[in-house]
Design a protein around this nucleic acid. Structure first.
Lengths: 246, 246
DNA sequence: AAGTAAAATTGATCAATATCAATTACAAAT
DNA sequence: ATTTGTAATTGATATTGATCAATTTTACTT
């Protein structure tokens, strides 16, 4: 038990999706005046926790921009086990790896109630053909995604202790929230310990023990799904990350 | 010791780079008549084993297409350790994750004598602006890279035994060679055991032991750097891969 | 071809983490 | 508020893979 104020968390409303039809939020690279993107929006939909946004193998027709909430992506391995491959938050766009007109590579499932903007690829493509700015914006967006994927990969590869892995994971989450101007020292973990374990390739019991240990060591305080980073510097030093200023 | 015919390996010359200036090999998606891409080529260079092609942090000016040989990419972690993040072969293009005009994210070092085509990003960008086909080709190329990175990620994430990891690794290598119409059951591992260990996050001793065990079990035969996959089906069943036909 | 340095193999031991098992806490629904 | 199923925690033990150490093999240099 701790004094973590649950009520204070997640109250900072994100307004981007209210003020534009796609723009800054879903296409942060496109700048602040993306009115021309309006007609790429197919529809907005909300999904309940556990609902599937799209499935691996489905033909790609849209990109999916997350306006609110969080999503996990996973594939079924050849041995039948399920493998979580990523967690995605407000501002992330899913489906760009299927932009070659093929199929989605993974399942996308809501971790909590989410609002998702469906972006018609046909219309986006047409628009990009007419407007070089959009094309370039799309290219930059994809490049960013490549760079981002690469940085996400880092905590995963290489030999790290379980503690280093979890620290890297929490640190990476915090960074993503920071980039979005969301609270980055206190937030809700929308994914289960089991999800984290699956993602990091550790046993769920190990994750539990590590959370307890991190709390003992004054690294974080956690109450159920809510986590507060007590010592960000210490956390960062435990995390093993790709050198940020090479 | 075994009867592996070393001489037979790697003798199948790849001709793509001889017959075009960029085209099919470096831009497989661009089709067979990419003459217009000629003036994107800045230069061809060869690098000796161990030579650096580009470094993390350098400003991105070119993409690098591998015409012959292989390359490893790595970053220095925040704790000072070096982390190998990938191996790259004929036909791979490096640098697309820096296409947003920023810096390369990793070091690229030759694993053997390599020939590399330097593709001026300025010229490519200009050309893409004038020719929608090139633009679309570039987009598809990046999407492919995203999809490819995703599939490379799979063997890395999640809980797998050391044997499953190494089997996945060898299987993935074989698949990449197959896609390039190169011998895919007998090939030379241009990276050291140490490199493989670093990449997979295992001890080099573990890699050694696994190679020995795989040989005992009739999975592969290996002689120094040369490896022959004796039982591809068994290897594939040991490997844990993202479901290829979801 | 010989000499040398680096890489790989193999063995013995130890530490980290998975697994198995039993409670406890939490959250959704009545 | 109570019930009920799911998730999380904690403990005891087993297993895997890391580490330390000693050779052996390979590759590079002269």
């Amino acid at each position: 038990m701790n004094n973590l104020s649950v009520a204070k968390i997640n109250t900072a409303k994100q307004k981007q999706c209210e003020t534009c039809d796609l723009g800054y939020l879903c296409f942060p690279e496109a700048g602040a005046s993306p009115d021309y993107l309006k007609n790429t929006v197919q529809r907005d939909r909300t999904y309940k926790r556990g609902e599937t946004v799209f499935r691996a193998g489905e033909t790609m027709r849209s990109l999916y921009g997350i306006c609110a909430g969080s999503v996990k992506t996973s594939t079924i391995n050849s041995d039948g086990t399920s493998q979580i491959t990523g967690f995605h938050f407000v501002g992330d766009i899913l489906g760009m790896d299927a932009l070659n007109g093929k199929q989605y590579l993974y399942d996308a499932v809501a971790l909590e109630p989410v609002r998702i903007r469906e972006i018609s690829y046909d219309r986006l493509k047409k628009l990009a053909g007419e407007n070089p700015d959009i094309q370039e914006s799309l290219t930059r967006l994809m490049s960013n995604q490549l760079a981002f994927d690469y940085q996400l990969l880092m905590p995963m590869v290489g030999k790290k202790s379980a503690a280093q892995q979890l620290a890297s994971y929490i640190h990476a989450l915090a960074q993503r929230f920071q980039q979005r101007n969301m609270p980055d020292t206190e937030f809700r973990l929308t994914m289960s310990r089991n999800d984290i374990a699956n993602y990091l390739g550790l046993a769920k019991e190990t994750i539990s023990r590590l959370f307890s240990r991190f709390e003992e060591e004054g690294l974080v305080t956690s109450h159920a799904k809510y986590i507060s980073i007590a010592d960000p510097d210490k956390l960062a030093s435990l995390a093993v990350l790709g050198d940020p200023s090479p």
